[in-house]
């Protein structure tokens, strides 16, 4: 288990837990980012922050500090196996 902010570009993860105690976590929940959800880190801004993540057919940008509280389990994608 590791924070969402530590994923590398292109890596996917499955949300394990969200502390859900800060307004930011509630915003992410409202967008549908909840335990069990698959999420992919698609891009890091040129200056290293914020990051852009993709989940459930949408792309959302958030600051690394805000992504820290989202714990994910890294998923090994099928592409990696077939490559």
């Amino acid at each position: 288990m590791r924070p969402l902010s530590s994923l590398t570009v292109g890596q996917q993860g499955q949300v394990v837990q969200l502390n859900a105690t800060r307004p930011i976590d509630q915003r992410l929940l409202a967008l549908g980012l909840m335990p069990g959800m698959r999420v992919k880190l698609v891009r890091i801004a040129p200056l290293g922050d914020p990051i852009a993540i993709e989940f459930q057919n949408q792309c959302v940008s958030l600051r690394k500090a805000e992504a820290e509280a989202v714990q994910v389990e890294v998923l090994v994608t099928r592409e990696v196996f077939s490559a």
Partner: peptide, 9 residues
């Protein structure tokens, strides 16, 4: 309160 910077692209 600062608003979280969660921005839909």
């Amino acid at each position: 309160r600062a608003q979280p910077f969660v921005l839909e692209m």
